[in-house]
Measured scan of single mutants.
Amino acid sequence: DHDVVPEDKFQETLHLKEKEGCPQAFHALLSWLLTQDSTAILDFWRVLFKDYNLERYGRLQPILDSFPKDVDLSQPRKGRKPPAVPKALVPPPRLPTKRKASEEARAAAPAALTPRGTASPGSQLKAKPPKKPESSAEQQRLPLGNGIQTMSASVQRAVAMSSGDVPGARGAVEGILIQQVFESGGSKKCIQVGGEFYTPSKFEDSGSGKNKARSSSGPKPLVRAKGAQGAAPGGGEARLGQQGSVPAPLALPSDPQLHQKNEDECAVCRDGGELICCDGCPRAFHLACLSPPLREIPSGTWRCSSCLQATVQEVQPRAEEPRPQEPPVETPLPPGLRSAGEEVRGPPGEPLAGMDTTLVYKHLPAPPSAAPLPGLDSSALHPLLCVGPEGQQNLAPGARCGVCGDGTDVLRCTHCAAAFHWRCHFPAGTSRPGTGLRCRSCSGDVTPAPVEGVLAPSPARLAPGPAKDDTASHEPALHRDDLESLLSEHTFDGILQWAIQSMARPAAPFPS
């Protein structure tokens, strides 16, 4: 592969990997390779389809078979030569091979799209000592099968071997295949498990690692696999990028399955594409389908809103127990993405979901129960707010008499603000006073009005108090039968009158 990737590009890729991570280095090298001529790309395919690569990765054979028959990708048995050289000459001794072996032994695996480039050397060096003999053996194999790289107009793939297949390693990572398949204008990513390549439709969760975000852009890794992070704060999961590491605690105790298979379609829109997988259930989501939507993949363990709600429900009964003089119970939860139609709101002032922060849900004790107040519409209280300059209440639009249902020339009671006709409430011909108009209920007259088809109010509507207090003497005590009587009149003013009279009014101040 030294004929494909020059030394300066190799060093530039290593520097970019240390600065921005393996995914960015892979993407940059792939983009550079696509700008080369067809001879360089053909050399790339020839390096990929060597015999030892085909033996190690069985899924490469179907890719090789898909090439046109007129494309010669065979390799000479006596060494490598550029395709432009007409004579089959043995190339001179390859010093770059020693360079590659020494550099890969030092860096474990470079971040390139060629056999030198995919593992994360920093994480491997940190986690190597417990498994040094086995990992050293794996390093000797890295130059042979560490990076199976493929690129063409139909298929483009980048393979990364790992030393996680050490025997006896619980939940060992089998390997990473960062794979971009450009077929019919689409893009897919796969993962390699035990020599087999699994596409998103049959993606397997190998051991402790999972394909957290099938994305090839942005600074985030394709698999949430930063070796420096180790395990999740809650004892979460091992990262795919942690090559040759000792077994780590796999999943939280509440995880239903340690080796679950995540779905390959969004649980909201039932469509495929780039998904984020939940650590607590097999569901996966688009970032845009979450509520609120996320802009980037959160670091650490992530769970959907259903799993978060289940966790909150487990903690909430203990938080609601009476604990005198104790601060509110704080339950730190990872930043969760909410699927459509589901929402768990945190306290005000918290950062938005999706940031690399930890939301704190506070379970406050329930407030003391209070008697429910009568629910009145805002339009129902409008007549009470229509007060004239002299303190006389004006008529609201649409006000109707509670007896006849007519809204023409209605009066407004100064005591309960109900609309009424003087002739309907006082049919006996009582003279109307000039000021202080009161309806039949507030004036103490319980004589029913002779209106055909309208039920008369119940005599129990009024329960006047002592006459010594004029204001308190007109406080009506309405009961269920009074409400039914008012409802039978089918008037809004009657219902409003009952609601206003049912509310307690402050006692009249004593004259000074």
Rank of each mutant, 00 (worst) to 15 (best):
G241E: 05
G241V: 11
Q242N: 10
Q242A: 08
Q242S: 07
Q243E: 08
Q243Y: 13
P247R: 10
A248N: 04
P249E: 05
L250Y: 13
A251Q: 14
L252S: 09
P253Y: 15
P253W: 15
D255A: 13
D255M: 14
D255L: 13
L258S: 11
L258P: 13
L258G: 11
Q260G: 10
Q260N: 07
E263F: 11
C266Q: 04
A267P: 11
A267K: 11
R270E: 09
R270Y: 07
D271P: 04
G272D: 11
E274T: 10
I276H: 09
C277Y: 10
C277N: 06
C278V: 08
C278W: 06
C278I: 05
C278P: 14
C278N: 15
D279E: 09
C281L: 08
R283S: 13
A284N: 08
C289W: 04
P292E: 15
P293L: 11
L294P: 06
R295S: 12
E296H: 15
I297F: 08
S299M: 01
G300D: 08
T301C: 06
W302F: 07
W302C: 13
R303I: 06
R303C: 13
C307R: 14
C307A: 15
C307P: 15
Q309I: 10
Q309D: 09
Q309C: 11
A310T: 12
V312A: 06
V312C: 10
V312K: 13
Q313F: 07
E314A: 10
V315S: 08
Q316T: 12
P317F: 13
R318C: 13
A319H: 08
A319V: 08
A319C: 11
E321A: 09
P322R: 10
Q325S: 10
Q325F: 12
E326V: 11
P327L: 11
E330W: 15
E330Q: 07
T331F: 02
T331P: 06
P332E: 14
P332F: 14
L333S: 08
P334N: 09
S339F: 10
A340E: 13
E342D: 10
E342N: 15
E343V: 13
V344P: 13
A353F: 15
A353D: 07
A353K: 11
G354R: 11
G354T: 13
G354I: 15
M355S: 07
D356R: 04
D356Y: 09
T358K: 05
P365F: 14
P367A: 15
A370Y: 04
L373T: 05
P374L: 11
P374D: 15
G375P: 09
L376E: 08
L376Q: 05
L376R: 07
D377V: 10
S378H: 08
S378C: 15
S379N: 06
A380C: 14
P383V: 05
C386E: 10
G388E: 15
P389V: 04
P389H: 10
P389C: 13
Q393D: 07
A396E: 08
P397I: 13
P397V: 05
C401A: 02
G402R: 10
C404G: 02
D406V: 08
G407S: 12
D409C: 08
A417G: 04
A419C: 12
R423H: 13
R423V: 00
C424Y: 02
C424S: 01
C424W: 02
F426D: 09
F426K: 07
P427T: 08
G434P: 11
T435A: 10
L437R: 10
L437A: 10
R438S: 06
C439Q: 00
S441R: 07
S443H: 05
D445V: 08
T447F: 14
P448A: 05
A449R: 05
P450A: 06
E452S: 09
G453Q: 08
P457E: 09
P457Q: 04
S458F: 11
S458D: 07
R461C: 08
L462R: 08
A463R: 08
A463G: 10
A463Y: 11
P464Q: 10
P464C: 13
P464R: 06
G465K: 05
A467W: 14
A467D: 13
A467K: 07
K468I: 06
K468N: 10
D469M: 03
D470L: 10
D470I: 07
T471F: 09
A472E: 06
S473I: 15
E475P: 07
A477Q: 08
L478F: 08
H479L: 09
R480M: 10
R480E: 00
D481W: 00
L483Q: 03
L483D: 07
L487T: 03
S488G: 05
H490T: 14
T491L: 01
F492T: 00
D493E: 09
D493R: 00
G494V: 02
G494N: 10
I495C: 02
Q497N: 15
W498K: 02
I500W: 02
I500C: 03
Q501M: 05
S502Q: 01
M503L: 10
A507N: 10
A507M: 06
A507K: 02
A508G: 08
A508N: 09
P509Q: 09
F510D: 08
S512F: 10
